[in-house]
Design a protein around this nucleic acid. Structure first.
Lengths: 308, 308
DNA sequence: AGAGTCTGCACAGACCTTAGACATACATGG
DNA sequence: CCATGTATGTCTAAGGTCTGTGCAGACTCT
């Protein structure tokens, strides 16, 4: 909890203006001490920053305020609802929410090019304000990360900016992973990337989605060699191993890993996830997961439900 | 046990203020002699120092006091709550309360070899129950990560276990990073690794320590090429760039990066941190940071305090 | 005896509060 | 083009709160 002076420092807004925005637009309602001092929490700071950002980019103060306020209302709704299916997603992304996912992705890349850490956090806030976690991952976060990669490939983004943004995303996903505590019923699903593959945001997001469905995930991360896949499956007693295959370059290692796992432990179900999953799975006894995160996670979860 | 004068000297707080903090906020409750003189123990000094640090970084006195008090309460609770399984209790909580850091590190590596995610979390809980965050990072967490690397190098640990444990550590550090929100006063310190270097737990822990001291950190992560360092320093307007140099193999890239930054932007202070920092800094106009995390973070923070 | 410590009180300056004034900018209607 | 009204950022005045510091008088320790 911050006093008004600290809140001003954190939000980058003057003290007078802070009070004016509260009085005129009600953009925040800080608690009060018994003596009447305002006390701002993190959410208040985030809202003030969001409003400042809008005003700086040309919005009028009152418009910015209503945008921020509605945003918050939406967040409350999103927190209460359990939106997993497409219909519900559509409901939420319908006309009511005027923000185009690609606009958020663009803002994300822009903040990355500027090395604007606060801006990155603001965009992530805006993303996660737009619906259930699953949906946000699929519709906003992963596309934004893809856009980040594209921008880097096209030379529009320095690698430092890419790192800064990736680190921010990984922190968010880490928090979500921790939040979705797994049941203590023993490891069930291994998630990781084949040897040589580095971009771990995809599998981490997938691990989060699985955990939120009550599945016990063992997250191995990037660059897991074939032998380690076999050893990990063996030692963890996992029933399912999910190997991420995003790039064509990772196909060979993924196929090798899947084959080795099956050879050593025929009872284990191996799945490929990611953009190149279908290509990688040809001719192997491997489940190809849908590209959409929600669908892929649901498919895994359903597999468990059917087995009991 | 210290008299109030000695306590004042050790904590760096005036005698009057010491009494005021006790009277107004109850941040310490020193024992008394029969004649009523206050007697401070080490824990009291530590709490006073913690409070002083918070106040120096801009916290209000009452806020700082409640933070310190809650921290201590949490610590007590955490210390009692984390006996989960017999095995773990035997392994790392031992018969006596005096826990050897190496025992925790051993338990950590053991849980990693077993791919025991819950066990890893328990060990991390036990670590963070043992003191202030800074101290835990220095005394428990980083040594455990080093032990992890050693075990892998010696072939006692599969890379999958190393990944699992690293991911768990990174999640903890991410949470701490997010928790220690930075002031919105613009980027001040860049933290990252040179090109080719991958193990980012060290610099991430360092970024956490800096953030907890109220410094605005831009965390770039691993594998940042020389050009990107220069561009990032330029674009972020950072006053200090800290390059992690852990392995001898990273020395060349780190030196190149430092030289390039200095050439492009002579006003920027460049520091090397990590095990190979001293070796890497020879003959360059670069600040070599102490190997201990606390000392390194304090040195950077002091640099800012002196400049105003 | 002299230095150290105790309690309680006082006080200055920084900080926060409300209510309102004021200036600039921008749009709208005459 | 001008006058009027609105929107918005900034400032002031009067008063309460928070917090660091210092003092007085009494007691304790060496």
């Amino acid at each position: 909890m911050y006093t008004i002076k600290q809140a001003a420092a954190r939000s980058g807004i003057g003290i007078s203006l802070l009070r004016a925005w509260e009085r005129r637009y009600g953009v925040v309602h800080p608690e009060r001490t018994t003596s009447g001092y305002r006390l701002y929490d993190e959410e208040a700071i985030a809202r003030l920053r969001a409003m400042r950002r809008l005003v700086e980019t040309g919005w009028g103060a009152s418009q910015a305020a209503t945008a921020v306020i509605n945003d918050a209302a939406e967040r409350v709704l999103a927190g209460a609802a359990h939106l997993t299916t497409e219909e519900q997603a559509d409901t939420f992304l319908g006309p009511a929410s005027a923000v185009d996912p690609s606009a958020l992705a663009g803002a994300f890349v822009l903040a990355a090019t500027r090395l604007d850490a606060a801006g990155l956090e603001d965009v992530l806030d805006a993303m996660f304000a737009r619906g259930s976690v699953d949906m946000v991952l699929d519709v906003h976060l992963l596309p934004a990360v893809r856009a980040l990669g594209d921008a880097w490939a096209a030379g529009r983004l320095d690698i430092a900016g890419e790192h800064l943004a990736s680190a921010a995303v990984i922190r968010r996903l880490s928090a979500l992973y921790n939040l979705a505590g797994a049941p203590g019923t023993g490891p069930r699903v291994l998630v990781g990337l084949p040897a040589g593959a580095r971009h771990e945001i995809g599998p981490l997001a997938f691990a989060v989605a699985l955990r939120r469905r009550g599945i016990d995930v063992l997250y191995l991360g990037a660059d897991v060699p074939v032998d380690s896949w076999v050893a990990a499956v063996d030692r963890s007693g996992a029933a399912v191993a999910v190997i991420g295959v995003h790039r064509a370059a990772d196909v060979a290692q993924a196929r090798e890993g899947a084959t080795a796992i099956k050879a050593a432990n025929p009872g284990v179900s191996v799945s490929f996830g990611g953009a190149a999953a279908a290509q990688a799975g040809v001719g192997l006894d491997v489940v190809g997961l849908p590209e959409r995160l929600i669908d892929a996670a649901t498919q895994i979860a359903r597999g468990f439900a059917q087995r009991g």
